[in-house]
């Protein structure tokens, strides 16, 4: 961090979590998203302060109205519904990822904060540990 950096949004700068999990994969097509959310839940269960950043197709994880797959595969919507129970309340989404997919915060099943690129930069650099899925 240099002194001449412009002041970031108040929502991103002061937050230093124990763990930031970045989720870049959509639900159903692979197990990346499920594994990332699992890691977040396990860390939270051990008392760690955890936040989630959704980028790219990862924003589809938050879309309202998801269900099981055609063969009964569980999906991740039920897992995400558990986040609040585990005190994982800091959810950020890439604003550009939303825009590129024709989504707004109103399409999401959970309350999240949309971040522009410079805010994502600040968020990621403020964290001591980041895992990417």
């Amino acid at each position: 961090m240099t002194d001449d950096e412009t002041a970031p949004a108040a929502d991103t700068q002061p937050i230093s979590l124990d763990l930031l999990v970045i989720l870049r994969h959509p639900p159903h097509g692979s197990s990346w998203l499920r594994e990332g959310v699992d890691v977040a839940l396990v860390a939270a269960a051990f008392g760690q302060a955890v936040g989630l950043l959704f980028q790219g197709d990862g924003v589809f994880a938050l879309v309202e109205g998801q269900g099981a797959g055609p063969l009964g595969q569980k999906g991740t919507h039920a897992q995400l519904a558990m986040l609040e129970m585990y005190d994982i309340e800091r959810l950020w989404v890439s604003a550009s990822a939303l825009r590129a997919r024709g989504l707004t915060l109103a399409d999401l099943a959970l309350p999240a904060l949309a971040l522009e690129a410079d805010e994502i930069d600040h968020l990621v650099h403020a964290q001591p540990r980041t895992l990417l899925f």
Binding site: T2, I22, R24, G56, D57, A117, D121
Partner: peptide, 14 residues
Amino acid sequence: DGIYWDLSEAFGAE
């Protein structure tokens, strides 16, 4: 190209 974009969002000045 999606991963290049996502990385660029997290990429800092240093």
